[in-house]
Protein backbone atom coordinates (compact mmCIF):
# COMPACT_ATOMS: atom_id res chain seq x y z
CA UNK A 1 0.00 0.00 0.00
CA UNK A 2 1.43 3.31 -1.11
CA UNK A 3 0.15 6.75 -0.09
CA UNK A 4 -1.08 9.27 -2.65
CA UNK A 5 1.78 11.61 -3.58
CA UNK A 6 2.36 14.66 -1.41
CA UNK A 7 4.84 17.45 -0.87
CA UNK A 8 7.10 17.31 2.15
CA UNK A 9 8.95 19.82 4.28
CA UNK A 10 10.94 19.35 7.49
CA UNK A 11 11.33 22.85 8.97
CA UNK A 12 13.96 23.63 11.59
CA UNK A 13 11.78 25.77 13.89
CA UNK A 14 8.29 25.78 15.31
CA UNK A 15 7.60 29.15 13.67
CA UNK A 16 8.52 27.74 10.26
CA UNK A 17 6.37 24.68 10.89
CA UNK A 18 3.36 26.86 11.76
CA UNK A 19 4.08 28.99 8.69
CA UNK A 20 4.24 25.92 6.43
CA UNK A 21 0.95 24.63 7.86
CA UNK A 22 -0.76 27.97 7.22
CA UNK A 23 0.62 28.10 3.70
CA UNK A 24 -0.36 24.50 2.98
CA UNK A 25 -3.99 25.17 3.82
CA UNK A 26 -6.49 22.63 5.04
CA UNK A 27 -4.88 19.71 3.26
CA UNK A 28 -1.55 20.18 5.05
CA UNK A 29 -0.85 17.78 7.91
CA UNK A 30 1.73 17.56 10.65
CA UNK A 31 3.93 14.48 10.84
CA UNK A 32 5.26 13.49 14.26
CA UNK A 33 5.91 9.75 14.76
CA UNK A 34 3.60 8.90 11.86
CA UNK A 35 1.91 5.97 13.59
CA UNK A 36 -1.60 7.35 13.25
CA UNK A 37 -1.25 9.34 10.04
CA UNK A 38 0.87 7.06 7.82
CA UNK A 39 -1.41 4.01 8.20
CA UNK A 40 -4.39 6.18 7.17
CA UNK A 41 -2.42 7.55 4.21
CA UNK A 42 -1.43 4.04 3.11
CA UNK A 43 -5.08 3.00 3.17
CA UNK A 44 -5.80 6.26 1.30
CA UNK A 45 -8.31 7.24 3.95
CA UNK A 46 -6.19 10.38 4.27
CA UNK A 47 -4.50 12.15 1.35
CA UNK A 48 -2.82 15.32 2.58
CA UNK A 49 -1.16 17.41 -0.13
CA UNK A 50 1.64 18.52 2.19
CA UNK A 51 3.33 16.87 5.18
CA UNK A 52 5.10 19.16 7.63
CA UNK A 53 7.54 16.87 9.46
CA UNK A 54 8.40 18.04 13.00
CA UNK A 55 11.52 15.87 13.30
CA UNK A 56 13.96 18.77 13.00
CA UNK A 57 12.11 21.16 15.31
CA UNK A 58 14.18 21.45 18.49
CA UNK A 59 12.73 21.15 21.99
CA UNK A 60 9.81 18.87 21.21
CA UNK A 61 10.90 15.84 23.25
CA UNK A 62 11.41 15.21 26.95
CA UNK A 63 9.58 15.20 30.27
CA UNK A 64 10.02 17.74 33.06
CA UNK A 65 8.34 18.03 36.43
CA UNK A 66 7.52 21.59 37.44
CA UNK A 67 5.33 22.73 40.37
CA UNK A 68 3.50 19.43 40.63
CA UNK A 69 2.90 19.15 36.89
CA UNK A 70 4.57 16.80 34.41
CA UNK A 71 5.28 18.71 31.22
CA UNK A 72 5.62 16.18 28.42
CA UNK A 73 6.83 17.65 25.14
CA UNK A 74 4.65 16.57 22.22
CA UNK A 75 7.16 14.42 20.31
CA UNK A 76 8.03 12.34 23.38
CA UNK A 77 7.57 8.72 22.29
CA UNK A 78 5.26 6.23 23.97
CA UNK A 79 8.40 4.34 25.02
CA UNK A 80 9.75 7.44 26.76
CA UNK A 81 6.41 8.04 28.49
CA UNK A 82 6.23 4.34 29.47
CA UNK A 83 9.66 4.52 31.12
CA UNK A 84 9.27 8.05 32.49
CA UNK A 85 7.93 7.18 35.96
CA UNK A 86 4.64 9.03 35.48
CA UNK A 87 2.33 6.52 37.22
CA UNK A 88 -0.90 5.98 35.27
CA UNK A 89 0.38 7.64 32.07
CA UNK A 90 3.46 5.38 32.05
CA UNK A 91 1.43 2.27 32.77
CA UNK A 92 -1.00 3.05 29.94
CA UNK A 93 1.77 3.97 27.47
CA UNK A 94 3.52 0.64 28.18
CA UNK A 95 0.44 -1.19 26.85
CA UNK A 96 0.35 0.64 23.50
CA UNK A 97 0.77 -1.89 20.71
CA UNK A 98 4.35 -3.23 20.76
CA UNK A 99 7.84 -1.85 21.22
CA UNK A 100 8.35 -1.01 17.54
CA UNK A 101 5.24 1.17 17.67
CA UNK A 102 6.18 2.66 21.07
CA UNK A 103 9.59 3.59 19.66
CA UNK A 104 7.95 5.78 17.00
CA UNK A 105 4.48 6.83 18.16
CA UNK A 106 4.31 10.05 20.17
CA UNK A 107 1.99 11.29 22.92
CA UNK A 108 1.25 14.53 21.08
CA UNK A 109 0.53 12.74 17.83
CA UNK A 110 -1.83 10.32 19.52
CA UNK A 111 -3.77 13.09 21.29
CA UNK A 112 -3.94 15.30 18.18
CA UNK A 113 -5.25 12.33 16.19
CA UNK A 114 -8.04 11.98 18.76
CA UNK A 115 -8.86 8.32 18.21
CA UNK A 116 -11.38 7.17 20.83
CA UNK A 117 -9.83 3.68 20.66
CA UNK A 118 -6.31 4.94 21.51
CA UNK A 119 -4.99 4.72 25.06
CA UNK A 120 -3.77 8.22 25.88
CA UNK A 121 -6.90 10.36 25.26
CA UNK A 122 -8.91 8.80 28.13
CA UNK A 123 -5.81 8.97 30.34
CA UNK A 124 -5.46 12.73 29.69
CA UNK A 125 -9.14 13.11 30.54
CA UNK A 126 -8.82 11.22 33.85
CA UNK A 127 -5.84 13.37 34.88
CA UNK A 128 -7.84 16.50 33.96
CA UNK A 129 -4.65 17.53 32.19
CA UNK A 130 -4.33 19.96 29.31
CA UNK A 131 -2.34 20.53 26.14
CA UNK A 132 -0.52 23.57 24.83
CA UNK A 133 -1.20 24.55 21.21
CA UNK A 134 0.83 27.09 19.21
CA UNK A 135 -0.59 28.80 16.17
CA UNK A 136 0.06 31.96 14.12
CA UNK A 137 -1.47 34.14 16.86
CA UNK A 138 0.40 32.58 19.79
CA UNK A 139 -0.08 29.86 22.36
CA UNK A 140 -3.22 28.70 24.11
CA UNK A 141 -4.10 26.00 26.59
CA UNK A 142 -6.80 23.45 25.79
CA UNK A 143 -8.18 21.50 28.79
CA UNK A 144 -8.65 17.76 28.26
CA UNK A 145 -12.43 18.06 28.56
CA UNK A 146 -12.48 20.48 25.59
CA UNK A 147 -9.88 18.81 23.37
CA UNK A 148 -11.90 15.91 21.98
CA UNK A 149 -14.91 17.00 19.92
CA UNK A 150 -15.92 14.02 17.83
CA UNK A 151 -14.51 10.90 16.19
CA UNK A 152 -10.93 11.82 15.07
CA UNK A 153 -11.80 15.50 15.58
CA UNK A 154 -10.15 17.75 18.16
CA UNK A 155 -10.33 21.43 19.10
CA UNK A 156 -6.92 22.01 17.47
CA UNK A 157 -7.11 24.44 14.56
CA UNK A 158 -5.61 23.29 11.22
CA UNK A 159 -2.72 25.74 11.66
CA UNK A 160 -1.98 24.87 15.29
CA UNK A 161 0.76 22.61 16.61
CA UNK A 162 0.22 20.68 19.83
CA UNK A 163 3.53 21.33 21.60
CA UNK A 164 3.13 20.03 25.13
CA UNK A 165 0.97 17.78 27.29
CA UNK A 166 0.57 18.71 30.95
CA UNK A 167 -0.44 16.17 33.55
CA UNK A 168 -0.80 16.97 37.25
CA UNK A 169 1.50 14.64 39.19
CA UNK A 170 -1.49 13.19 41.14
CA UNK A 171 0.66 12.60 44.22
CA UNK A 172 -1.17 10.40 46.71
CA UNK A 173 -3.41 8.82 44.08
CA UNK A 174 -3.33 5.11 43.32
CA UNK A 175 -3.83 4.14 39.69
CA UNK A 176 -4.99 1.25 37.57
CA UNK A 177 -5.14 0.64 33.83
CA UNK A 178 -7.07 -2.16 32.18
CA UNK A 179 -7.79 -2.80 28.55
CA UNK A 180 -9.12 -5.67 26.56
CA UNK A 181 -7.92 -6.63 23.10
CA UNK A 182 -7.11 -9.81 21.25
CA UNK A 183 -3.52 -9.10 20.27
CA UNK A 184 -0.91 -6.78 21.80
CA UNK A 185 -0.84 -4.54 18.76
CA UNK A 186 -4.61 -4.11 18.52
CA UNK A 187 -6.52 -1.05 19.63
CA UNK A 188 -8.55 -1.43 22.80
CA UNK A 189 -11.99 -2.97 22.39
CA UNK A 190 -12.55 -1.10 25.64
CA UNK A 191 -10.11 0.42 28.13
CA UNK A 192 -10.61 1.80 31.63
CA UNK A 193 -8.20 3.85 33.69
CA UNK A 194 -8.72 4.83 37.32
CA UNK A 195 -7.12 7.26 39.76
CA UNK A 196 -8.14 6.89 43.41
CA UNK A 197 -7.25 8.99 46.46
CA UNK A 198 -7.92 7.57 49.91
CA UNK A 199 -9.03 9.73 52.84
CA UNK A 200 -7.29 9.15 56.19
CA UNK A 201 -10.26 6.99 57.28
CA UNK A 202 -9.74 4.72 54.24
CA UNK A 203 -12.77 5.98 52.31
CA UNK A 204 -12.63 7.33 48.77
CA UNK A 205 -11.69 11.02 48.85
CA UNK A 206 -11.47 11.39 45.08
CA UNK A 207 -11.79 9.16 42.05
CA UNK A 208 -11.37 9.67 38.31
CA UNK A 209 -12.28 7.08 35.72
CA UNK A 210 -11.51 7.40 32.01
CA UNK A 211 -13.06 5.17 29.36
CA UNK A 212 -11.50 4.28 26.00
CA UNK A 213 -13.62 3.35 22.96
CA UNK A 214 -17.00 3.79 24.67
CA UNK A 215 -18.20 6.61 22.39
CA UNK A 216 -17.02 8.84 19.58
CA UNK A 217 -14.68 10.53 22.09
CA UNK A 218 -12.98 9.36 25.28
CA UNK A 219 -15.32 9.60 28.27
CA UNK A 220 -15.35 9.91 32.04
CA UNK A 221 -17.43 7.29 33.89
CA UNK A 222 -19.08 10.03 35.94
CA UNK A 223 -21.90 7.90 37.39
CA UNK A 224 -19.41 5.33 38.70
CA UNK A 225 -17.20 8.12 40.09
CA UNK A 226 -20.16 9.69 41.92
CA UNK A 227 -21.17 6.31 43.32
CA UNK A 228 -17.74 5.79 44.86
CA UNK A 229 -16.68 9.28 45.98
CA UNK A 230 -17.06 9.59 49.77
CA UNK A 231 -17.82 5.87 50.17
CA UNK A 232 -15.68 2.99 51.36
CA UNK A 233 -13.16 1.31 49.07
CA UNK A 234 -14.07 -2.29 49.88
CA UNK A 235 -14.67 -4.69 47.02
CA UNK A 236 -18.48 -4.50 47.36
CA UNK A 237 -18.45 -0.71 47.06
CA UNK A 238 -16.09 -0.88 44.09
CA UNK A 239 -18.16 -3.57 42.37
CA UNK A 240 -21.33 -1.52 42.96
CA UNK A 241 -19.80 1.63 41.50
CA UNK A 242 -18.32 -0.24 38.52
CA UNK A 243 -21.81 -1.51 37.64
CA UNK A 244 -22.50 2.07 36.54
CA UNK A 245 -19.40 2.40 34.34
CA UNK A 246 -21.37 2.26 31.08
CA UNK A 247 -24.02 4.82 32.15
CA UNK A 248 -24.40 7.54 29.55
CA UNK A 249 -22.02 5.94 27.04
CA UNK A 250 -22.81 5.12 23.42
CA UNK A 251 -20.12 2.67 22.33
CA UNK A 252 -19.78 2.06 18.59
CA UNK A 253 -20.19 -1.56 17.55
CA UNK A 254 -17.49 -3.01 15.31
CA UNK A 255 -16.13 -6.33 14.04
CA UNK A 256 -14.70 -7.18 17.46
CA UNK A 257 -17.47 -6.20 19.82
CA UNK A 258 -21.15 -5.23 19.89
CA UNK A 259 -22.21 -2.17 21.90
CA UNK A 260 -23.72 -4.44 24.58
CA UNK A 261 -20.50 -6.43 24.89
CA UNK A 262 -18.53 -3.19 25.20
CA UNK A 263 -20.80 -2.06 28.04
CA UNK A 264 -20.11 -5.37 29.76
CA UNK A 265 -16.36 -4.91 29.24
CA UNK A 266 -16.53 -1.36 30.61
CA UNK A 267 -18.13 -2.60 33.85
CA UNK A 268 -15.62 -5.42 34.31
CA UNK A 269 -12.54 -3.39 33.37
CA UNK A 270 -13.69 -0.46 35.50
CA UNK A 271 -13.99 -2.75 38.54
CA UNK A 272 -10.52 -4.20 37.93
CA UNK A 273 -8.95 -0.77 37.37
CA UNK A 274 -10.59 0.59 40.55
CA UNK A 275 -9.42 -2.40 42.60
CA UNK A 276 -5.90 -1.94 41.26
CA UNK A 277 -5.98 1.80 41.99
CA UNK A 278 -7.47 1.38 45.49
CA UNK A 279 -4.83 -1.24 46.30
CA UNK A 280 -2.09 1.24 45.41
CA UNK A 281 -3.68 4.34 46.99
Amino acid sequence: MIPVGFDYVAPQSLEDAIGALAEGGEEAKLLAGGHSLLPLMKLRLAAPTLLVDLRRVPGLTGIERQNGVFRIRAMTTHHQVATGGLGLASEAAATIADQQVRNRGTIGGSLAHGDTAADMPAVLLAYEGDVAARGPSGERTIPAAELFEDYLTTALAPDEVLTEVRLPSMDGYGFGYQKFNRRREDWAMVGACALVKKAPDGSCEDVRIGLTHMGSIPLRASAAEDALRGRGLDSDAIAGAAEQAAEGTGPPGDLNATPEYKRHLARVLCRRALEEAAGRA
Binding site: Y8, G34, Q100, N103, R104
Partner: peptide
Protein backbone atom coordinates in the same frame (compact mmCIF):
# COMPACT_ATOMS: atom_id res chain seq x y z
CA UNK B 1 13.42 -1.65 16.39
CA UNK B 2 10.82 0.05 14.21
CA UNK B 3 8.44 -1.11 11.49
CA UNK B 4 9.80 0.09 8.17
CA UNK B 5 6.37 -0.17 6.47
CA UNK B 6 5.22 2.76 8.64
CA UNK B 7 8.17 5.07 8.17
CA UNK B 8 9.06 7.26 5.22
Amino acid sequence: PIKSCTFL
